[in-house]
Write a protein that binds this DNA or RNA. Sequence first.
DNA 1: TATACAAGTTAGTTTACGCTAACTGACGCG
DNA 2: CGCGTCAGTTAGCGTAAACTAACTTGTATA
Lengths: 111, 111
Amino acid sequence: MYLESILVLSQTHDEVHSVDVANYLGYSKPSVSRAVGVLRDRGLLDMDEHAHLILTEAGRAIAEKVYERHLTIAEFLGKLGVQASVAEADACRIEHIISDETFRAIKAHLQ
Amino acid sequence: MYLESILVLSQTHDEVHSVDVANYLGYSKPSVSRAVGVLRDRGLLDMDEHAHLILTEAGRAIAEKVYERHLTIAEFLGKLGVQASVAEADACRIEHIISDETFRAIKAHLQ
DNA sequence: TATACAAGTTAGTTTACGCTAACTGACGCG
DNA sequence: CGCGTCAGTTAGCGTAAACTAACTTGTATA
């Protein structure tokens, strides 16, 4: 979720700070600070000297995978007749828990 | 998940014990014992003098709702072409997180 | 230049939910 | 009769991920 948020925010902001992620997700600054530390330890993002959050290649790959799932699932739910705002919210939860196989089936169904 | 397990087990067992739930879910006895305590405090189940687990009306309602979701989602994923065992596993996770609206849309689609 | 705010971190708390180890109590069997 | 086993509970641990309070630090402005 954090990686995905950074990716999404980077599409509309030149630079992404921890505080932007906190506002976007509705979390506290310390929660984001902790998460950034964990993700940095795992080699998924870096912070430059101005505290801008930069996804590494590995982090960007994960973020893009999750974001693609998000868009696909939300579109899929929309086609099932689910209201857009609800589809968004459910996509946020579903994107993290379904198997690759189920995701591929959903994607194939849309095409 | 616990309530749903008790409902499912009660379909094949005359009586459901904590240890049955533990085996079914692959959790330890203390984990089930704690969960049973929490669910009892919330008025969702009772234990009789022989430690049989009995769902209350409220508990049964939740268990049936979740179980219906499980069956419906698994069937839905099956129709999308997801392998049965994977559909089962994904249904287990999805059933707990989707909104009522999304569930209704899935159910309507099957009919 | 001093102050005040904004961003980020540190420290410590809470809740949830797994676990193991060890205790209690009932029950069957040699 | 006593002993082992099985079910359930208690106590305590670990991790994850949220929180608040309070600290640091850098920057902008009055």
